[in-house]
């Protein structure tokens, strides 16, 4: 039996595209968080471009996955990889959309500086970013080791979100002029929390892809 050359080439191309999408997702969230922290507009356009590219990749990869399923009948690790691609591209796309949302909050922010030095949000952003990076690393290297850390960070991100929410409400109650900015902080915190959830989904999928075991983070 000869190896299936065309099929192998298609699988390799697909893997490259999903990897490209993963890397662009990491870049989008990093730039979005930086832009918000500094209320710096220079990355906003770039994040919006990345979001559009992620969307296009999502469509292209889905089409290729369905073609391979229809024409090549993938099984075993190939099937698990394609099932994983079909799921994680949605997560990457959603993360890209949240990055864009964070950039938009920056762009629409009336204030040109934060009303207090930001501590919790950058901390939360670092953790969400790390979760995405670790999930992407696990995915690219087909290694489940980083996923453990992703699940640990998820709990921290969730607690931090509750904390930020309470803290911001206190500021808003003290001073109604801070309501606009305060709303932005809660929005950004919410987006970061959702990004963390999607990173968890990716990690769960990577575990399935690599081991065949289905793991669901509680």
């Amino acid at each position: 039996m000869s190896p299936r050359k065309a099929y192998m080439t298609e699988l390799a191309e697909l893997d490259e595209l999903v990897s490209l999408m993963a890397n662009k997702t990491s870049e989008a969230i990093e730039l979005a968080v930086r832009s918000f922290e500094r209320l710096d507009m220079q990355f906003v356009d770039k994040v919006e471009r990345l979001d559009k590219e992620l969307y296009d990749l999502n469509i292209d990869i889905e089409k290729r996955c369905l073609e391979i399923i229809a024409l090549q009948s993938p099984v075993a690790k190939d099937l698990r990889a394609i099932g994983t691609y079909l799921k994680v591209i949605t997560d990457f796309d959603r993360i890209g959309r949240y990055a864009k949302d964070i950039a938009e909050v920056t762009a629409h922010s009336v204030e040109r500086s934060h009303f207090k030095p930001l501590v919790s949000i950058p901390h939360m952003a670092n953790m969400a970013e790390e979760m995405v990076d670790l999930s992407v690393k696990a995915f690219l290297e087909r290694d489940i080791a980083p996923t453990k850390q992703v699940f640990e960070l998820e709990d921290k991100v969730d607690s931090l979100y509750d904390e930020i929410f309470r803290e911001v409400i206190t500021y808003m109650m003290e001073d109604s002029k801070k309501i606009g900015a305060g709303m932005n902080y809660t929005l950004v915190a919410r987006y970061l929390e959702r990004i963390g959830d999607h990173a968890c989904n990716i990690s769960e999928r990577v575990i399935y892809m690599v081991t065949g075991e289905r793991v669901v983070k509680e």
């Binding site: 039996m1 190896p3 299936r4 099929y7 993938p74 099984v75 075993a76 690790k77 190939d78 099937l79 698990r80 081991t211 065949g212």
Partner: peptide
């Protein structure tokens, strides 16, 4: 979906 043996994996995936 998830063969145990490397040889099975190689055969069924071509």
């Amino acid at each position: 979906e998830n063969p145990e043996e490397e040889l099975t994996e190689k055969y069924i995936t071509g």
